[in-house]
Write a protein that binds this DNA or RNA. Structure first.
Length: 760
DNA sequence: AACAACGGGCTTTTT
DNA sequence: GCCCGTTGTT
């Protein structure tokens, strides 16, 4: 009955905090979710209307689970009116309600990354720019960065720094692309992922009545995973909380792993500035992991400079040491770990679902898939190509999208000739050109050739008109017809179902099944919606679908499987036995992270997240050589292994004492004294001998490079290409160089890590 | 307009 | 090594 008794002292005081700003710094496995859910339950028990509570989570799944748990604690229908979800889904809803104020249709389309890149590519082509220089991915990242920092196209154009950066990276036209991209999205009635936050900001800025409404609706605001919010999200929260200041943020700076997409750890640090009288709660007792795991994780994260002081501890038993497994190849790594899982399962009577294999990049899953399949061990891969990103799924959804919003040009382009209906490239080109000339959407042109004459042959026009008629008939029903019925009608009357059914190749069969699965999903969605109100339409389904990820698409049947996923995907999860694989320099830490301390520290936090997923045992593995880019490359073990206090490690199949290189340090005496003498005091000490060893082979060369490097030198970098040294700072080990690379802009490089060649 | 063959780029991570 | 997109062929 009294849920407060299920909490420890520090959890309880945090839960009992009702009014005023508060921040919870929650170490890994410290019961963060429990505090969040119980605090909401506590608010409700204290008479706060669920209508007035906003809780923002990082994933849809987290929101769903939290809602269920709250429902269990408070019972009844109390939890129904909570506003709970990801930033993107919550504000997408709010935007739909208020779209007119922004000049958007309420059924605006949400462009996913693919749509965005495709549109950018079109624009780059239309501008006659070289898409080797203006790569859609890079352009997208640049625009995304701007939006997440609330820089409008106009502000972008007027920002001399940004313009200078773009010039230096040989992309002076970027501001024009951004402008056009924003205009085209608007014309298409589409928002991309970043727009959902950006336009929310615009809305709250320009519509005082809307701001006022939500400020008073959301009297209590809770934000989970606060360390992974970006500036745009930060401002939304700040504005909404401005009246009541009942804001509760929960996070762990040590688990911030999304800065690459604009997340800003400083939001945590700035919290005290915005709310000087805030209350800080720290959850430091770990309930998840063995003491060995907790201590090992602590010993690694200490290498990071940027962190909030925090002492994670546990009363859990000591547990087993962390196994370090050395393999010759990536395939062997797969075999060894698959066998290990099989053995452990047999010996300890475990389930498959007790195991997880975590890796840095999705590409690594292959070797494990193969070996697990050979041993007949069931597994499930999370991530990779999401269900909703499969071609056949996107195709069918594109029909839904187009029916809901005919101006959605990305959807139109996708399906105008799929299934094949004889509308070819030249025809589409003509129509597109005409649309640009008349300054209307493609749909406007093709739905009214008398008004917008196009120079294409009559048969082509007929085919297009047939297509248009079809879409129009769907459009007529999309707001009213039951979702499942219309979806099925579309799937069959467009010929998609038949097209896939006729394909008897294994892939074709899977595609057909996927479509059936999507239809089943729509059915389930309808049933769920009908519990609340009236008929669910496809239009309703579309509101959700763009923001679904495959974590939201879990098949319930047969859940006893080994989990394979990236470390990013594992955030928030826990498993009894965890294998963190591919611990090699240039893979984990990623090569791309080695140029700056900030990036390297993020990799280290990622490693911290990986290790702290485990309850009972952790094993770390690496391969001496592995296939990458189709080539065999040899690698050294990751620095992260060496950064763990060796007291917590156990090295399997150590290398023989053959006077090799860095691996010798693994044959450490277990005796503490001699350990101290050899390696010095943790954690700082490990670095020095490590680096000396790493540089052994090329020490001379590198020393020369470092000493001779002067401001103004032209240098070459393995990844960034040629560049010019702007300035040098620091001494000894820590010499850093600001180097300007035409390809990527200014980079600060730690010379110790960056292999710079002086040229000319 | 449809299909086959070739070439390039890619591997961080995702709402 | 694979996937995607572009090019060339019919």
């Amino acid at each position: 009955m009294d849920f407060l008794e299920e909490l420890n002292e520090s959890q309880r005081v945090a839960v009992e905090h009702i009014d005023g700003p508060m921040m919870v710094i929650a170490g890994a496995g410290s019961g963060k979710t429990r505090v969040l859910t119980y605090r909401i339950a506590h608010l409700l028990k204290n008479g706060i209307d669920s209508f007035n509570i906003l809780a923002l989570t990082f994933t849809n799944k987290a929101a769903r689970e939290m809602k269920e748990r709250i429902h269990k604690v408070v019972g009844g229908t109390e939890a129904k009116n909570l506003t709970m979800g990801t930033f993107h889904s919550v504000f997408a809803r709010i935007l739909r309600h208020n779209a007119d104020k922004l000049g958007y249709p309420s059924n605006f389309t949400i462009y996913d990354t693919q749509d965005s890149k495709s549109l950018l590519k079109t624009i780059i082509k239309e501008f006659g720019l070289d898409d080797k220089i203006y790569k859609p991915g890079i352009v997208y990242a640049r625009i995304s960065g701007a939006k997440n920092n609330l820089i409008s196209p106009k502000a972008y154009e007027n920002n001399t720094n940004i313009i200078a950066e773009d010039r230096m990276s040989r992309k002076p036209e970027l501001y024009r692309i951004y402008k056009e991209y924003a205009a085209r999205c608007f014309k298409a009635g589409a928002m991309d992922f970043d727009d959902l936050l950006y336009q929310t900001n615009v809305l709250l800025r320009d519509s005082p009545d809307v701001l006022h409404y939500y400020q008073h609706k959301f009297q209590y605001i809770l934000v989970d995973e606060y360390q992974d919010t970006n500036y745009s999200q930060y401002i939304i929260i700040k504005k909404l909380a401005a009246v009541y200041e009942n804001i509760c943020v929960v996070g762990d700076d040590a688990q911030s792993i999304y800065s690459f997409r604009g997340a800003n750890v400083e939001n945590i640090l700035n919290f005290r500035k915005d709310y000087p009288d805030f209350k800080l709660y720290k959850l430091e007792q770990n309930y998840r992991s063995s003491n060995t795991i907790v201590q090992a994780a602590n010993s690694v994260i200490e290498f990071n400079k940027d962190r909030i002081k925090k002492e994670v501890w546990t009363l859990n038993s000591e547990g087993e040491r962390i196994n370090v497994i050395r393999c010759m190849t990536d395939n062997e790594e797969g075999r060894v770990i698959s066998n290990r899982i099989f053995q452990m399962k047999q010996q300890k009577g475990l389930d498959f679902k007790d195991f997880a294999i975590l890796y840095r990049t999705n590409a690594q899953s292959r070797a494990f898939e193969e070996s697990l399949r050979k041993l007949n061990l069931p597994y499930k891969i999370y991530g990779g190509l999401s269900f909703y990103q499969r071609k056949e799924i996107k195709d069918l959804i594109a029909y839904f999208r187009l029916a809901a919003n005919p101006k959605d040009e990305e959807a139109l382009k996708r399906i105008i000739n799929y299934p094949k209906r004889g509308i070819g490239k030249t025809t589409i080109d003509f129509v597109t050109l005409a649309a640009r000339q008349y300054d209307v959407s493609i749909w406007d042109v093709i739905s009214d050739f008398t008004r917008y004459p196009v120079n294409i042959r009559v048969p082509a026009q007929r085919k297009i008109t047939d297509f248009v008629t079809k879409i129009q008939s769907y459009s007529a029903q999309i707001e009213t017809a039951p979702a499942y019925d219309l979806a099925e009608t579309i799937a069959s009357s467009t010929g998609i179902l038949k097209d896939l059914y006729d394909d008897k190749s294994p892939e074709g069969v899977v595609r057909y099944e996927n479509i059936q699965e999507l239809l089943a999903g729509i059915k389930a969605f309808s049933v769920q919606q009908e519990e609340n109100d009236e008929v669910a339409t496809l239009s309703d389904f579309l509101v959700d679908v763009a923001l679904l990820t495959d974590a939201d698409h879990e098949d319930e049947e047969d859940n006893d499987r080994i989990s394979l996923m990236t470390i990013h995907a594992s955030k928030g999860l826990e498993f009894p036995h965890v294998f963190v694989v591919g611990l090699e320099e240039n893979l984990f830490p990623s090569q791309l992270s080695l140029t700056s301390r900030e990036d390297l520290e993020e990799e280290r936090r990622l490693f911290y997240v990986a290790v702290t997923r485990a309850k009972e045992t952790v094993a770390l593995s690496y391969a001496i050589s592995r296939f990458r880019y189709g080539q065999l490359v040899t690698s050294e073990p990751s620095r992260f292994i060496e950064e763990i206090n060796p007291d917590f490690l156990h090295f399997e199949n150590e290398r023989k004492q053959t006077g090799g290189r860095s691996m010798n340090s693994y044959n450490r005496p277990t005796n503490q004294e001699s350990l101290q003498g050899k390696i010095g005091v943790a954690p700082k000490r490990n670095l020095v001998p490590l680096n000396q060893m790493k540089n052994k082979g090329s020490a001379d060369k590198e020393a020369i490079i470092n000493e001779n490097l002067k401001v103004g030198h032209n240098v070459e970098h393995g990844r960034f290409g040629k560049g010019k040294v702007l300035s040098l700072t620091g001494e000894g080990q820590d010499v850093k160089a600001d180097v300007f690379f035409p390809s990527v802009g200014k980079k600060t490089l730690i010379l110790r890590f960056a292999k710079l060649k002086i040229i000319g």
